[in-house]
Amino acid sequence: MYTEKVMDHFSHPRNVGELKNYNAVGEVGNAKCGDIMRIYLRIEDDIIKDVSFKTFGCGAAIATSSIATELIKNKHVDVALELTNKAVIEALDGLPPAKIHCSVLAEEAVKEAIADYKKKQGIIIETHSQCDDCCRD
């Protein structure tokens, strides 16, 4: 069902927990859908010096959070903003179709956290923090 990469990031998640001295945070998802992702960032001079996550969700949600933190660490915030869910999927060697939404959440969580940082600088960037179609009832 899951690739080795997904299982590796699920069972040995990188950068998990609440970051000390974080200066930006973003949270997406909701408990109803079964996924909540929160990304903490410590940004200095627009560079993401440190990053961590906390996730309530399935194995794929934990793995996508973990890999997303690796993909944006030490990156300029504007580069990190360009992180796509496709890049997250590729970095994990693929995700089952039913779990694609987890990669979308990871992308959105990163954007939400960077938006929080930008907001403090007076810059408003648009985010889509709603999971669009996963709660279909």
């Binding site: 069972s11 079964g34 399935c58 939404h101 709660c135 279909r136």
Partner: peptide, 26 residues
């Protein structure tokens, strides 16, 4: 689902009412 995956890694086979195990999201 995370619970089941970790149990599985420890050779324990159980099931869950989690959405993720059923292929739906509810």
């Amino acid at each position: 689902e995370g619970l089941l995956l970790f149990l599985d890694m420890n050779q324990i086979f159980a099931s869950s009412g989690s959405a993720c195990t059923s292929g739906s999201l509810d």
